[in-house]
Design a protein around this nucleic acid. Structure first.
Lengths: 349, 349
DNA sequence: TTGTATGCGTTATCAG
DNA sequence: CTGATAACGCATACAA
């Protein structure tokens, strides 16, 4: 007893009509008499007729599903993005297929391959930290696949993009540390190829400059795996603390890097001054429960997801090639939970 | 310039063959001569032919996708489950469609409706905390849809199930609190209709009994929205603290409830003794960073996801109705990060 | 107003 | 060994 769906044919047979009449009645076509319409509609309702979306897809050459590539769903930033995407997708009758790169270029490529072979109508992408080149994405885009980038965008591909104001977010975060009295502020960031890494670095540098502090290259560390590999981050921190100019605060440039630093500091994996400052980009749901209170830069992830899909749908549905693209920039929010330096009793031990 | 896929027809035309020959060559049929095969394969490779999965689905009456219903992906327990599911799905050529109930019965029902209308081949379900009845699920199951339940199972529906040993997990958690010296241990749990709530309650009660402590109904509070509504949990805690027998420790029975309690205690939303104990079921990724250290019961979520889909696939692929079902039980892990009572300096303030 | 025929991309059946 | 044809479920151009 397999799951057997009822088809238009079944209805037609039962009612002594042709399939086309039934089809038209169901689509409320003007050419069908009210009586026939009612007859069909009632019967369809009664036997719980559901159109077969696969047949529809084949006919319309549209799958009504869109692919999403993110780093990891087990990351609040991305899960909130996905929630935003889904909220719109559902309204518009689209189906969302999520795939995770786990910050690996290989996985990203194979997911890309998988998604396109699953005949999706469009793609929402946040590239992985490890992504070396954008040839795959470019090839797919050139073939006519609508793509919208969010968060980690690709400059080389001309399409819609949604980002947050990374520059200002980083600027504010760094300024906050400076205003708290820290003077040797290290910056731990993602792979330098990533758009977000570049922009946040620029914000950090600009804040230093505006506060009359000099930039020290040795205080900047890149994690090209985006903190997915714990050792990488640990090494970066170790190096920082061995540096001749020793940092008294850290600005971490992503969710993963922020919590990674926290974990390493907390577990005393490396010896670190008691009163080191830490601020980071993070959408984690438990950051408000940490001791010492962790100040964070939050991104409007849900809105970003909504915006991304709202920009994608017109690309999918437009009959003509779209030639004009825009980049939406959302504001971040600096959540300050720690505004005084040197509170020994609340400090990371 | 829309995304135009190349079809078998294109290959056939280009090579002067029939579509059936091409199809057979691509499937490496024995009836095709090696030369033709090579010709076709090479050309297909060259123009990057990808079979259209939608056409295949229509033909095979199989979508190669499975639906998953969880509470929220922004919950580490569920995102780890999903990772487990996806790891197997990908290997087996299945596509995963995730939908979130957000612990609402209505959303769960509409998702169920949506998923089945998207012609999925099978369903993995963890029912929402708010679920009142299982009529929808039952109806779908009765129509022949393969379903495997995980975590929050439905006893009334006869199929495969995967759970953790909730009884032992709760028993160990409660015992840990008792051994730390707490004597008035409250239990905050999910809607009493949920399988996990019942089993964890039983473990809690059994631990009390085995340690010669008497059960006090007034120390048990149910949150029927599973902690999704903050007020509900706050009210439960307030009531507990007004209770004549005042709790000195809390055993929270889910991820959401554990972090919910933490948040309320930490934010001093209600006045609470300094040295109140807390332990809970949780797979949160930041629990190891909290102060005071939070002991938790961890569930093997990834394995649970893998197991669930591994049990589902045979149901989907079997040609005959399956009549014998089993329930797999996985062990939880008690992670103790707090083994002494009364540490004023590390206590929730 | 309703019915018939065709095609979406693929494979299976049957002929050749 | 290869080709023509039908079918999966649906929508639609065309015929009646």
């Amino acid at each position: 007893m397999k799951f057997e769906a009822v088809t238009i044919k079944d209805i037609a047979k039962a009612l002594g009509l042709s399939t086309s009449t039934v089809s038209r009645a169901l689509r409320d076509s003007y050419e069908i008499s009210p009586e026939t319409k009612k007859l069909v509609l009632d019967y369809a309702e009664k036997i719980n007729y559901q159109p077969n979306p696969i047949a529809l897809s084949l006919k319309e050459r549209k799958s009504h599903s869109i692919g999403v590539i993110v780093g990891e769903i087990a990351n609040n930033f991305f899960s909130q993005i996905i929630n935003g995407i889904e909220s719109v997708a559902k309204e518009e009758g689209y189906n969302v297929i999520i795939s995770q790169s786990h910050e690996s270029f290989d996985k990203e490529s194979s997911n890309l391959q998988y998604l396109t072979s699953r005949s999706i109508d469009g793609l929402l992408v946040s590239v992985s930290a490890e992504t070396l080149n954008f040839n795959n994405l470019k090839a797919i885009h050139d073939k006519g696949m609508p793509i919208v980038f969010f968060d980690r965008i690709v400059d080389e591909i001309e399409t819609h993009k949604v980002i947050v104001d990374n520059f200002t977010g980083a600027y504010n975060a760094t300024s906050h540390l400076i205003e708290m009295g820290y003077s040797n502020i290290a910056h731990i960031c993602n792979a330098s190829i990533l758009s977000i890494a570049k922009e946040r670095l620029a914000g950090y540098l600009s804040a230093l400059k505006d506060h009359g502090m000099e930039n020290d290259e040795s205080l900047i560390k890149y994690c090209k795996h985006g903190g997915m590999i714990a050792q990488e981050l640990e090494d970066a921190l170790k190096e920082l603390l061995k540096n001749k100019r020793k940092p008294d605060a850290i600005f971490a440039s992503s969710d993963k890097l922020t919590t990674g630093c926290l974990r390493i500091l907390k577990k005393k994996k490396i010896s670190v001054p008691n009163d080191i400052g830490l601020i980071g980009f993070s959408n984690g749901d438990l950051t408000d429960l940490l001791d010492p209170p962790l100040s964070v830069v939050r991104q409007p992830a849900f809105e970003m997801g909504q915006l991304a899909i709202r920009m994608l749908l017109p690309l999918i549905e437009s009959k003509y090639p779209v030639t004009s693209f825009e980049t939406k920039v959302l504001s971040t929010e600096l959540i300050i939970r720690n505004s005084t330096k040197h509170q020994p009793e609340r400090v990371l031990k």
